[in-house]
Amino acid sequence: MSRPLRADIDLDALRHNYQLACELAPNSRSLAVIKADAYGHGAVACARALADLAPAFAVATIEEALALREGGITHPVVLLEGVFEASEYQLAAQHDFWCAIHSEWQLAALEAATLPGPISCWIKFDSGMHRLGFDAEQARAVKKRLVASGKAQDLHLMTHFATADSLTPDYFQHQMAAVEELAAELALPLCLANSPATLAWPQSHAAWNRPGIMLYGADPLEGANDASRRLKPVMTLSSAIIAVREIAIGEPVGYAGRFVATRPTRIGVVACGYGDGYDRHAVDGTPVLVDGQETVLAGKVSMDMLTVDITDLPEAGVGSRVVLWGEGLEVNRVAASCDTISYTLLTGILPRVPKHYHGGQAREADPMASQAVDTCA
């Protein structure tokens, strides 16, 4: 009998969430952002599931882009951080990777490169994130240099919003004003909206949007809106109770004895721990589902196990199904109990957790991956 921990990936939910992004912005095209192994969901399998819907994909590194090509994905792929060394421009030209240009050295390296043909380039404008990108004056010069170089084609202007998830719109509006002013001058197609802007700020919907975390069913907004409530979770992380302990009043559970029983307590031991990617910072009271009923974490998360209070679930016992997030339990709720965000939990799932794909294009999940594939209708 294998260890019961598994991550079920609902490719139909993934497709639903992508189609929601398109529905919200009918005059835009939407890049499917599948960086960080599709936020922990399996990049090749997710790309294949979206291949008939998405016109292009976006990743952070050329290694991620090459993995898509090796997995049979032929769509254009945007390198959101561009190249990390000059030699990567050769691969970009060979494989139809579209490159963000955010730094002077990237621009100079492209100007100096000998390429078989021009590369699609997306100029990164720093409208206020102050992380990557050029200011407005620099962006004007970058466009001129790219055109003069003969090494670039299909120029776009892109930016990244720092506070699109916030209930307070002031800084978002400041960034929008800055990019609108520059866009009017440069007359380039725009790529602006990330997931929260796709969900909440239609004025940012441009030639391209780039939904990321919303594709995987996690709401990125500080306050849910009608659109974000329609998202469907893609990953359900589940396991089972492997042992039950009866704990007397005053007895501790787990490392450092953080949880101490205040009543006669039944503790269920679950096969999942921080060695699988479940966050060790989860506090007592973190929500968990056991046989579909909500209960809580009781005690510190161990490397291979965690413990839950099943005192009020008399039918629960060895073999009871435990949902750690996903189906019936929003990952955001778990993340809040870990003082983190859903992105961290989803991308933190470690390789020993098997992924089981359902629906969509499940039959085409990567056959070379050490992942199980369920071909349920």
Rank of each mutant, 00 (worst) to 15 (best):
S2N: 15
P4K: 12
D10Y: 05
L11W: 03
A13K: 10
H16T: 05
N17F: 13
Y18M: 10
Q19A: 15
L24P: 02
A25E: 14
A25S: 15
S28A: 15
L31I: 05
K35S: 05
A36Q: 08
D37T: 02
G40K: 03
A43M: 15
A49Y: 01
L50P: 04
A51S: 15
A51V: 15
A58R: 00
A60N: 11
I62Y: 02
I62C: 07
E63M: 02
G71L: 04
G72E: 06
G72M: 09
G82T: 05
V83N: 00
F84E: 12
A86W: 11
A86D: 12
S87P: 08
H95M: 01
D96E: 08
C99V: 15
W105E: 13
L107G: 02
E111W: 04
T114S: 11
L115E: 04
I119E: 06
I119G: 01
S120M: 01
I123L: 10
K124F: 08
K124Q: 12
G128Q: 06
R131M: 02
G133F: 00
R140Y: 01
A141Y: 00
L146W: 06
H156K: 14
M158T: 14
A162Y: 09
S166P: 13
Q175E: 15
A178I: 05
E180F: 08
L188W: 06
P189Q: 09
N194T: 13
S195F: 07
W201N: 03
W201F: 08
H205I: 02
A206P: 03
A206G: 00
W208R: 01
R210M: 14
M214S: 12
L221I: 06
S228P: 11
S228N: 09
P233C: 01
P233K: 03
P233D: 02
L237S: 13
S238R: 14
S239G: 09
V244G: 03
V244K: 00
V244W: 00
A248I: 07
T262D: 13
T262R: 14
G268M: 05
G268S: 07
V270S: 01
Y274V: 06
Y278H: 11
D279A: 15
H281M: 13
H281P: 06
P287A: 07
V288N: 03
V290M: 11
Q293V: 13
L297G: 07
V301F: 15
S302L: 15
L306E: 08
V308F: 14
D312E: 12
G317Q: 07
V318P: 04
S320G: 10
G328S: 05
A335W: 05
A336I: 05
S337H: 15
S337E: 14
T344D: 10
T344R: 11
T347E: 03
P354R: 08
H356R: 11
Y357N: 03
G359P: 04
G359Y: 01
G360M: 02
D366W: 04
M368H: 00
A369F: 02
V373F: 00
